[in-house]
């Protein structure tokens, strides 16, 4: 049984007076992939963003309850959100490389964290690109613009950029939804490899993707966590009828 990496307790989130998350309590195991599924507007992306305090940037958001990472509440006043986001990296639906070279995209994070030694930076960039399974494709054009890469390569570059600051947790918000099947399968394969070293939480609308890549699945509906458990159980014998209806497409 894996240790719990992230623990949420009665986590609620409000946009103004509207409740978007209703008392979510969830134990996310370390070095496993946890998928969050549910219909649009169910709160899964909102929940994901609470895990590295991305919602702090939205005015009118109010959060109650706790998010404990390694036992520490990340919403404590003395927690620095920037430091937190080094530990909890994020990959978005649309790949968003900087308009810089491939090398500079990956080196950017380490540089702003004070690493300027060229040899060290080179090591970090190569290591990150290798772990993101894109090194072989870009090693001969590291100084070309990242914007010249294909969509799938850009997404893996963004994953490499996340890995470069040595996070422990990676949040992925629909990382493959804009990609073709081959690029999607590369991202999925990558997720599978990365979980050996990282705790991964992925939001996806693709049910088969959740089933393929994750160890645990949480089903959200109307801001509530309806069911959370082992993926192999959720997709074979879910306990709640709402989960069953959603994953079999009978929903609505």
């Amino acid at each position: 049984m894996k240790e719990t990496k992230i623990k949420t307790r009665n986590l609620s989130l409000y946009y103004g007076s509207k409740m978007a998350l209703n008392s979510i309590s969830m134990d996310i195991p370390e070095k496993q992939v946890t998928a969050l599924i549910g219909p649009s507007g169910c709160g899964k992306s909102t929940f994901l963003r609470t895990l590295n305090r991305m919602n702090d940037l939205i005015p009118s958001v109010r959060i109650t309850g706790e998010v404990l990472v390694d036992g520490f509440n990340i919403y404590d006043k003395n927690v620095d959100a920037v430091n937190l986001r080094k530990k909890v990296g994020m990959v978005f639906q649309k790949s968003n490389p900087f308009a810089k070279s491939i090398f500079e995209n990956v080196a950017y994070g380490p540089k702003i964290n004070g690493i300027h030694d060229k040899k060290k930076l080179k090591e970090i960039v190569e290591g990150s690109l290798q772990r993101a399974a894109i090194w072989e494709e870009v090693k001969d054009r590291l100084h070309d613009s990242a914007l010249g890469l294909s969509g799938g390569q850009q997404q893996r570059l963004c994953i490499a950029r996340t890995l470069a600051v040595d996070p422990e947790i990676i949040l992925m918000d629909e990382p493959a939804s804009a990609l073709d099947p081959i690029s999607t399968s590369k991202i999925e394969e990558l997720i599978f490899k990365l979980k050996v070293n990282y705790t991964i939480i992925i939001v996806t609308h693709n049910m088969q993707q959740a089933a393929r890549v994750s160890d645990n699945t949480g089903f959200f509906y109307l801001g509530e966590l309806i069911e959370f458990g082992k993926t192999k159980k959720i997709f074979t014998v879910p306990e709640k009828k709402q989960t069953e209806d959603y994953i079999t497409g009978r929903f609505g």
């Binding site: 049910m207 088969q208 089933a211 997709f235 074979t236 014998v237 879910p238 069953e244 994953i247 079999t248």
Partner: peptide, 9 residues
Amino acid sequence: TQPVATDLR
């Protein structure tokens, strides 16, 4: 259809 849950069973 990639069936799951009751459909799969």
